[in-house]
């Protein structure tokens, strides 16, 4: 799994590279558009992290060029521009995900993992974890065979966790998936839903969800 990181801020790039390499993703840094083109022409990558503000051009232009020339690598856009418009533009131009600065490393890792997985795995329709069984087709949840009464939002929430078992999910990643927003009010709303989920799915031994303060939640 090799990752190309197109980022001109040296410090940010170094921190990302180190973190990605800690989880066994060898990373190559390209600081400019031309360096990125050279790197991509030289060897294949499994995913690209692309910053929009580059010294010799715009990330959007680069993205468009790559997609028109048939490069199908999954691309995650990293940008200080956090407007729905930019987000939509990036995704329309063929990016696979969009993350606004300042971001949390956990979130970046989660998104990169999800990008890589999207290209290899096929989505399962039945998810199981610690006695919880989630049927995505029938839209039912059971705990040790007993059906659980979950609302639409609660179901969507548990589905995200079941898809990412054991991983830390940041608040903004979850709220973006459920409400298409990462407003701080939605983060509060998420906390409320998490409390309700915890009450509804009470496991006898270790609690199902762990709160990672300042970051998000993890299903264990």
């Amino acid at each position: 799994m090799r990752i190309l990181l197109v980022e001109n801020e040296h410090k940010v790039a170094q921190i990302i590279k180190r973190s990605l390499e800690e989880v066994e993703y060898p990373t190559k840094i390209a600081g400019t558009c031309s360096a990125a083109n050279d790197a991509l022409a030289g060897s294949p990558y499994d995913a690209i992290i692309l910053d929009l503000g580059l010294p010799d051009g715009d990330g959007f232009t680069l993205l468009k060029e790559w997609r028109t020339h048939g490069f199908t690598e999954p691309i995650l856009i990293l940008s200080a521009r956090d407007e729905v418009h930019d987000r939509v533009r990036g995704l329309n131009m063929g990016a696979d995900d969009y993350l606004a600065k300042p971001f949390s490393m956990e979130e970046l890792l989660a998104r990169v993992r999800s990008l890589l997985r999207r290209h290899v795995e096929k989505k399962a329709t039945i998810l199981e974890h610690r006695g919880i069984r989630l049927d995505l087709v029938a839209h039912t949840v059971t705990l040790h065979g007993e059906p659980l009464d979950l609302t639409g939002r609660e179901f969507a929430l548990i589905e995200i966790f079941m898809q990412n078992q054991g991983r830390v999910l940041t608040r903004s990643l979850i709220t973006e998936k459920i409400w298409d927003s990462h407003d701080e009010l939605d983060a509060n709303l998420l906390d409320v839903y998490m409390r309700r989920l915890r009450k509804k799915i009470a496991l006898p031994d270790e609690p199902l969800f762990k709160t990672i303060r300042g970051v998000g939640y993890q299903m264990i």
Binding site: V12, I15, S19, K101, P102, F103, M105
Partner: peptide, 24 residues
């Protein structure tokens, strides 16, 4: 608006990433 976004958020990213690293 564009510059403020970039100039403020990039250092914030660095602080945040470094803090997280400390914590982890």
């Amino acid at each position: 608006a564009g510059n403020a976004s970039h100039e403020l958020k990039t250092p914030l990213s660095i602080i945040r990433l470094q803090s997280e690293k400390l914590l982890m």
